[in-house]
Amino acid sequence: MDIYLVGGAVRDALLGLPVVDRDYVVVGALPEQLLQQGYQQVGKDFPVFLHPKSKDEYALARTERKSGSGYNGFICDFGPNITLEEDLSRRDLTINAIAQDENGMLFDPYGGQADLDSRTLRHVSDAFSEDPLRVLRVARFAARFHHLGFRVANDTLTLMRQIAASGELSALTPERVWKETEKALACEQPQVFFEVLRSCNALNAMFPELEKLFSSTEAHALQALWHGTQLTTELACRFAALTLQLDVAALTALCERSKVPTEHKELALLSSRWHQRIHALRDPNRDDAEQILALFQATDSWRRPERFAHLLLCAQADWQASIAFDSSAVLDSSAEPYPQRAQLWHWFKALQAITAGPFVAQGLKGPAIGEAIKQARLVQLQQWLA
């Protein structure tokens, strides 16, 4: 029985990146042997075991044969006769098909190290096209490693286009699509994920609303996502920045079909509805107190202050994306990049201090308390804007 460290742990170590998860492949063993050593079996379709102490995953070497559509349509064969090279051959990219034995020796039958050196994302074999999920995975790796100079190999991009043309992408579940998308949004350059999907004609199958949006405002949407990424690590904000230019109907359809988390959907809808109103706050002395208060009220800011702060951040990302493509704009480098955000937040925090206590002391009850708070906040806004 031989044990090898495989996949991302080997790849990231060779790139000088932190290694978070460690996965192992076991060659020449039967399930009973691992069970006797205290490993816990967790796999259903093929034997995967958790180490009794580290809880790292150990999988028996296996091969796969296409048996149906989608990324689940495979028959797995495993056993002591499956070689390491056969196991590595089923992996998606060469950089993920490098193994390391317990003595640190590397096994690289498919040229993964050379592709690491040349910063190339290349498929291991033509079997790549049997699994539609790999289109999303390659796009995600392109986003994750973009800052290191990685690009998708032309022949791999060709296979990705073939998968998109085959209709196989429709077999992917919304949950699996969103899981890959969420991982991509967490990258330093998440816009690359969508660029790669569009370059292989897969974006329309995954996110048709974005495909339509990109047909006219691609640069803006991706720039907004990039600026949002510079401002925050919150994935809901990044998603909202990307989709902010969609109308409510299109955004709702995208979120419902893709099983987007409620938090992401709510912030995206608020951003779509209110970003233009926030942009309009260029001259506080001309603004309307009732409209500003309506913004606070309609966005439920008093109960959801953190979400309101995220809304302002999304608006800033959108505005900065607009400025990036406005050749006539003249920016004052000494000024705040988006003063509306700071101004609205300042007003909000000050108005938040107006609470029910004094009105209860006056004897007001029920809805009258809420109306009194609203009027007091309106009066305060009017004084500031006078």
Rank of each mutant, 00 (worst) to 15 (best):
V19E: 09
V20N: 10
V20K: 13
D21R: 15
R22L: 09
R22V: 03
V26T: 07
V26M: 04
A29H: 06
L30K: 06
L30W: 06
L30C: 12
P31A: 11
E32Y: 03
Q33T: 10
L34V: 08
L34G: 06
L35K: 14
L35T: 09
Q40C: 15
V42G: 10
V42W: 11
V42M: 13
G43M: 06
G43W: 04
D45S: 12
P47V: 01
H51T: 03
P52C: 08
K53E: 15
K53R: 15
K55L: 15
D56A: 06
D56Q: 10
E57P: 01
A61Y: 01
R62H: 14
R65Y: 13
R65K: 14
K66I: 00
K66S: 00
G68P: 01
G68R: 00
S69I: 01
G70I: 01
G70R: 05
G70T: 00
Y71A: 15
N72E: 07
G73N: 02
F74H: 06
I75G: 08
G79K: 04
G79S: 08
G79W: 05
P80I: 08
P80D: 14
L84G: 09
L84F: 08
L88Q: 00
S89L: 12
S89R: 08
R90G: 00
D92L: 03
L93Q: 10
A97R: 00
I98M: 11
I98K: 01
A99M: 07
D101G: 12
D101W: 04
N103V: 07
M105W: 04
M105Q: 10
M105T: 12
L106F: 10
D108I: 08
D108V: 09
D108M: 06
D108S: 10
Y110W: 05
G111H: 05
Q113G: 02
L116D: 04
L116Q: 05
L116F: 08
R119S: 02
R122D: 11
R122Q: 13
E130Y: 12
D131M: 14
L133H: 14
R134A: 01
V135Y: 06
L136F: 12
V138P: 00
A139Y: 01
R140A: 04
F141A: 14
A142P: 00
A143Q: 00
R144A: 13
F145G: 05
F145R: 03
H146V: 09
H147G: 10
L148N: 04
L148F: 14
G149I: 09
F150V: 03
V152K: 04
A153S: 12
